[in-house]
């Protein structure tokens, strides 16, 4: 099972570190990261393996959202299937 974490917001030091720390704390294995900075807007998409997750996916999602809100970032954690089903036949 995999989930997609998206982070959008103003670029700042340590965003990737903060997100991956939360992942590590909950045993979510980061598989792939794509990121880009356009002007000063930061957009990162991270694919994580959640089969060994030590908490419920919705808890992880909540933690990320809270952390994001505190940093002025918009962070979403969504099950990979929603993207697969919408964009793949």
């Amino acid at each position: 099972m995999r989930a997609v974490i998206t982070v959008v917001g103003k670029d700042a030091v340590g965003i990737l570190a903060k997100v991956s720390t939360i992942c590590a704390e909950h045993n979510a294995n980061v598989i792939e990261v794509t990121q880009s900075v356009l002007q000063d807007m930061f957009a990162m998409i991270m694919l994580v393996d959640i089969s060994g997750l030590s908490c419920e996916l919705k808890e992880l999602s909540k933690l990320m959202e809270q952390m994001g809100a505190a940093q002025g970032l918009s962070i979403h954690v969504m099950h990979e299937d929603i993207f697969n089903s919408m964009h793949r036949i």
């Binding site: 997609v4 998206t6 794509t34 957009a43 919408m86 964009h87």
Partner: peptide, 9 residues
């Protein structure tokens, strides 16, 4: 997954 697809969703 394609980045554009993810952001579109």
């Amino acid at each position: 997954l394609n980045v554009t697809d993810i952001l579109e969703t």
